[in-house]
Write a protein that binds this DNA or RNA. Structure first.
Lengths: 188, 188, 188, 188
DNA sequence: CATGAATGAGCATTCATTCAT
DNA sequence: AATGAATGAATGCTCATTCAT
């Protein structure tokens, strides 16, 4: 039996996520990664076959986390559901920034990366379906404005996630505030 | 005398902008740029001394455009002014994405790039001042909710810009719709 | 662990010295260097961070060698000391040719190169001080002509070093011969 | 008839000489040259077909100048002749530094450069012959030490030329001083 | 003739990946 | 398993030279 691994795959992916957020996909290098881990650069290849696989695995992990959380949302009360979903998304707001570069991954080299990316694609679909379902329900219950097309409302809702939390409020309060602004507007 | 230039500086910067938006700062290469222009890679150096200067010039140009438009906004009616500003920003919504990487530019190599970046910095300040002024006025006139901190309202307003225009509406209508949702909310 | 290095740093610097003497600073390329070593050009970067550091390290090494030798010179008998010094310098006559280009090194890029160059500068000073001291002593003891300014005598002495050893004599004999010509002249 | 030439070939070669001395062969660029002349870089090609030809022409000119001067030396009195020759060489002491890089010129590209270089080669031979003749005469007349091989004496004589004129004396005095040291030595 | 623009070859450097220990 | 060394592909940039005006 060989030596003990000096870090876990999860740690590697955590650092990867941090660096991807800090530097973007093109600014993310294995050299950079190895500098934020304990061992040599080449050791990384014990965990993943190439750069693409690392990034893909990282993105997949984030997607899985989002999906498990959003699956737990109770959709009975549509507005309450939207608020919960907003909270989930705000909590993982890195998510979008991160996945925004998904298309840059060159999937040709790596089977594993390709699998991960297709998982992510499916996840995206499921999330969209869920959101569409809840919005449709809310709309059907007469909770939403009729003079604004539903897709526009969804788009604005979704984009709320990225609003910088300038006041550094706790995320549950912050998401409630966002939800309130989204629902009632800012006019007095 | 001398040959005719095969493309103008403006064309170069247009392509640069497009590529920066597509690939981000780190994904932007002179090879890529030259492939989207007519000539050889080295020809680019007839226009700019190095990569940093190109990016800086591109960003400066975008900033200048935004600033001249936002300077024309009539601030008499604060709410109308906000709506106009939203339109200006939505029209140039690339702007933020683009300038988000401004800090990555290594300014040490190039005098010209340094000058451009400082122009951009000042521009940022002026825009913030203008927005703060109008919001303060709107708030003073009692147009805004008091139960949400002003910075949070500004943050949401600003973030609206990035909302994807899923319905591909004309930008004037789209910005009015966004403004309406921001003011009145989406609740029925 | 890891592979065995295919050449030592000392070997690299030896080759560098040879090439610098052959081609001068501006004619010295890493491509050239790599062609005189076993591996690929990029392997050189395992040893030094950039071209400047290589050249600086090479020069520093030569300076260190000269200084340790000249520090061992016994200055009791001033004329004997000069003869010994001449021998030291003749032995390392490349030295001056090599360091003549020291000012061309762009030190801005590299901390390490800057350190090396400042070491070299100090070394130069120390050597000048030593030579001045011995000449002053020799002059004070009445060993030197009074009708020729001392700096001119020093300059000629120093310049002797570069005299091509056309007869390929052993360096100790050659330096004695030079010293004899310098002291007694060539006239019968 | 076209425009008037903005500088003469001689001016171009003067500047070339200055820059070659300052930067060495490898540090000499046409860009640098054009910056020290009035027109555009490409204008240089109206005068010479390529870089090699410029350098070769420059060296040839220097050689021609030396040769015409040294041809005027009266060889009747061998020691006086040597003193005169030393003066000629000291006056054009750049000469050696300059021609030291002659071997770097790639003669394959240019017929004209090849011709110039062969002229220089011949010149070198003639100068050596002249010096050898005078030294032989001086030796035959019993003017020189017998305990030092003649080639060594010649070598030292020749190398005197490069002695830095630290005191900035007028060149005729300086060359006399050098000659005196060479003949009589520095010992009291 | 003069020149500004265009170009390709060449070098410095970085980085993902492979190898040998 | 871990790792330091080796490597080739890619990119930024410079420069001699050619072209078109």
């Amino acid at each position: 039996m060989g030596r003990k691994r000096s870090y876990t795959e999860a740690e590697l992916l955590d650092v990867t996520k941090k660096l991807l957020l800090e530097h973007g996909y093109d600014g993310f290098h294995l050299k950079l990664l190895s500098e934020h881990l304990v061992g040599a650069r080449s050791t990384i290849y014990q965990y993943f076959a190439n750069k693409e696989e690392i990034v893909a695995a990282c993105m997949k992990r984030v997607m899985r986390s989002i999906m498990s959380k959003s699956a737990e949302v109770d959709e009975t009360d549509s507005l309450a559901a939207l608020q919960q979903i907003l909270y989930v998304y705000v909590e993982e707001s890195d998510f979008h920034q991160l996945l925004g570069d998904a298309h840059k991954i060159n999937v040709a080299n790596s089977e594993a990366a390709a699998r991960d990316m297709s998982y992510i694609e499916q996840g995206h679909e499921e999330l969209k379906v869920q959101l569409g379902r809840i919005f449709a329900k809310a709309n059907g219950e007469g909770n939403l404005r009729q003079d604004v097309p539903l897709p526009a409302q969804i788009s604005v809702f979704f984009n709320l996630i990225n609003t910088p939390n300038v006041l550094r409020m706790p995320l549950d309060e912050w998401s409630k505030l966002l939800f309130s602004m989204w629902m009632k507007g800012v006019a007095k």
